[in-house]
Design a protein around this nucleic acid. Structure first.
Lengths: 180, 180
DNA sequence: TCCGTCATGTAAATGGTTACATGATTCG
DNA sequence: CGAATCATGTAACCATTTACATGACGGA
C-alpha cells in the first residue's frame, strides 16, 4: 500500500458515514469539519481517483448524469482504521497575527489594537458557528454512536474560542494602557 | 517589488532585532517564536539570497570564515513595516487529533482516550515551556519597547494551553463514562 | 584527533491552493 | 430562458520539508 496523505484519511473517514459524490464530500468537510479541517477540490478529486485505483472506494452511479457516488469498500474500511491509528501529524505552527504582535514595537500599539480586535471578532464568530453546530448535533437524529464524538470536537472549538476571547480582552487592556 | 512570502516577513522581522547569520536566525525563530512560528533552513537560506538581491538585507563578514552577518537595510526596514501592515494570512485548519476524534466511533473509546491524553500532555509541556519563556522575558534586560509585546504572545500561548487542558479533562471524563 | 556545533547551501519530493474549463440540472 | 447550484476535473503555481553535501572551528 503506497503513501497515504492526510487527505486520504479525511476522505475515507467522511465516506465511512455515508456514500457521496466528491462535491458533497467537500461540502460535508466544510460544514461538519470546518472548524478544524479543510480540503479543496484540487485535493479531493485526485485523492478519489487514487483511492478508487487502490480498491479502497467504489464508484457507483449518482443521481445526475456524470456524477458518481463514492462508497467505502471493505478494504477501504480496513485502511481507514489503519490510518486512524497512526499518530496525528501536527502542522508546524504559523500564526501570522502573533508574529506581527511579537514585533509590535515595529507596528505601533494602535495597529496592534486593530490586529487583536480582529482576532477577537473571529473568535466570536467561531463561537456562534459552534453554537449552531451544537444545536444541530444535539437535536438531529444523527447516528447515535458518533454523536458524543462530534460534541467533543465542538467543545474543543468552544474552549479554544473562549480562551481566544479572554486573551484578546486582556491584551486589548494592556495595549490601551501602553498608548493612552 | 515582487511577491513576498510569509518567510520574508519573519526573516526581516527577526533581523530587525539584531543582525545575525542564517543559522542564528533559525535558532532565534525556534526559541523565541517556536510556540507560533517555524522556519526550516530550506526556507531561510533562499529567502536571505532573495532579500539580499533585492537590497533589503546586507551581508557583512561574520565571526567565522564563510559565515555572514545579515542586517536590515533602510529599504529592508521600510519593507518590513509594509509587510507587517498586511492582514495576516491564516493557514487552513488541519488538526489531525480532532479529525480522528470526530470519527471516534471508528477508532473506539480507548484509543480516543489515548489520543486526548497525548494532547493534554502536549499542552502541559507547552505551558512549562511558556513559563520558562515568561521568566526569562520578565527578568532579562530585553529591549524595553518589545518586552510587553513578547509577554502578550506568551500569554496567548498560556490561554490556549490552559484551555486545551481543561477541554482534555472534560473530554477524558466523557470518554470514561462512554466505555466503563 | 575526533566530535559536536556552527554554518551554508541544494535537490527532490510533497502537499496544497487557486484558477480555470466544462457541462448538467433545477428552480424561479 | 437564465441564474444558481451541482458536479468533475486539470494545470500552474507556491510553499515547505527532508535529506543530503560540504566544510570550518572549538574543545575534550
Amino acid at each position: 500500500m503506497p503513501r497515504a496523505t492526510q487527505t486520504d484519511l479525511a476522505v475515507l473517514a467522511v465516506l465511512s458515514i455515508e456514500p457521496m459524490t466528491g462535491y458533497a464530500l467537500r461540502d460535508a468537510i466544510r460544514t461538519h469539519l470546518g472548524a478544524f479541517w479543510s480540503e479543496s477540490f484540487g485535493q479531493i478529486y485526485p485523492a478519489l481517483s487514487r483511492l478508487r485505483a487502490d480498491g479502497l472506494v467504489a464508484a457507483g452511479e449518482g443521481d445526475r448524469s456524470g456524477s458518481s457516488l463514492h462508497s467505502l469498500t471493505a478494504a477501504g474500511r480496513a485502511r481507514l482504521v489503519e490510518l486512524m491509528r497512526e499518530p496525528p501529524v501536527s502542522a508546524p505552527p504559523r500564526n501570522g497575527m502573533l508574529l506581527r504582535l511579537f514585533f509590535g514595537s515595529v507596528l505601533g500599539a494602535a495597529a496592534c489594537h486593530d490586529l487583536v480586535t480582529e482576532a477577537r471578532a473571529q473568535a466570536v464568530a467561531m463561537l456562534e458557528y459552534l453554537a449552531a453546530a451544537r444545536r444541530e448535533t444535539e437535536s438531529d437524529p444523527v447516528g447515535l454512536p458518533q454523536r458524543p464524538y462530534w460534541l467533543m470536537t465542538i467543545s474543543a472549538g468552544e474552549h479554544s474560542a473562549r480562551a481566544a476571547i479572554a486573551w484578546a480582552d486582556e491584551t486589548l487592556a494592556t495595549l490601551g494602557a501602553l498608548s493612552p
